[in-house]
Amino acid sequence: MFLSPNDEDLNEQIERIIAGENEFHKSMFRMLANFDDEDLIVLERLVKKPAQAKE
């Protein structure tokens, strides 16, 4: 599998965060990694809601 340059940058950033000392940042990635499709849909709605209210 080949990664696009943007995917490679994202992977590097994630690796840097996981290797870092900030436990909150690491726990956020762990939580997202365990989300199922329904969880991700709910999160997407929550993230988009404030943006839609501004429109």
Rank of each mutant, 00 (worst) to 15 (best):
M1H: 13
F2I: 12
L3D: 09
L3M: 10
N6Y: 11
N6V: 11
D7Y: 05
E8R: 08
D9Y: 08
E12M: 09
E12Y: 05
E12S: 12
Q13T: 08
Q13A: 12
I14R: 04
I14K: 05
I14H: 02
E15N: 12
R16G: 08
R16S: 14
R16E: 15
I17W: 01
I17R: 01
A19N: 14
A19Y: 03
E21K: 14
E21Y: 05
E21G: 13
N22T: 02
E23Y: 02
E23F: 03
E23L: 10
F24D: 11
H25C: 08
K26D: 00
K26H: 02
K26G: 02
M28R: 10
F29I: 10
F29H: 04
R30A: 10
A33K: 10
F35M: 07
D36T: 01
D36H: 02
D37E: 14
D37N: 12
E38A: 08
E38Q: 11
E38N: 10
D39C: 01
D39A: 03
L43P: 01
E44S: 12
L46S: 06
V47H: 03
V47P: 00
V47R: 05
K48N: 10
K49W: 10
K49Y: 13
K49R: 14
K49H: 13
P50S: 02
P50G: 00
P50T: 00
A51C: 10
A51E: 14
A51F: 13
A51P: 02
A51Y: 11
Q52M: 13
Q52K: 15
A53P: 02
E55Y: 12
